[in-house]
C-alpha cells in the first residue's frame, strides 16, 4: 500500500494538532455566485474518523437552542484555517453523548494549563 500512501501524502495539508473535545474555530470557503468569502464555524470536536487524506472531523455547536453538527474533511482546501480555542479534557474518542445533554451538562471540561503545557513539551521533545 506504500504507493497508495505516497499518493495520499501529496494532498495532505499542514494542520494544527487538535483532539476530541477541543473547541475549534474553522474558516470555511463559501462560494456565492462568483464571489468567495470565509465563513467561520466554531464548535466542539465530537469525532474524528478515517486516516490519511480521507480523515474527517465532526463539529457540534448549539446555535439559538438548536444543535448543529457539521462534518469536514481535515485536509479539504475549503477549510482554509483551523484555530484551536480551548483544549477539552475528555476520556472518550467520540462525544456523541453530548447530543442528549443540555445546558451545563453539555459542556466539555477544559484541560488544565499545566496539562496542555506538558503535552506541548512532550510533543516538541519528540
Amino acid at each position: 500500500m506504500s504507493l497508495v500512501k505516497a499518493v495520499e501524502e501529496g494532498f495532505k495539508k499542514e494542520i494544527p494538532a487538535f483532539n476530541i473535545g477541543d473547541t475549534v474555530r474553522i474558516h470555511v470557503k463559501v462560494i456565492e455566485g462568483d464571489k468567495e468569502r470565509l465563513q467561520p464555524f466554531e464548535g466542539t470536536v465530537i469525532a474524528r474518523k478515517g486516516s490519511g487524506v480521507r480523515e474527517t472531523f465532526m463539529l457540534r455547536k448549539v446555535s439559538f437552542g438548536v444543535g448543529v453538527e457539521r462534518i469536514f474533511p481535515v485536509h479539504s482546501p475549503s477549510v482554509s484555517k483551523i484555530e484551536v480555542i480551548k483544549h477539552g479534557d475528555v476520556r472518550r474518542a467520540k462525544l456523541y453523548h453530548l447530543r442528549s445533554k443540555k445546558g451545563k451538562h453539555a459542556k466539555v471540561k477544559e484541560k488544565s494549563r499545566e496539562a496542555v503545557k506538558a503535552a506541548a513539551q512532550k510533543a516538541s521533545a519528540e
Binding site: M1, V4, E8
Partner: peptide, 8 residues
C-alpha cells in the same frame, strides 16, 4: 491494482 483512495 494497488488500491483505492481519495484525492482532492
Amino acid at each position: 491494482k494497488l488500491g483505492m483512495t481519495q484525492i482532492v
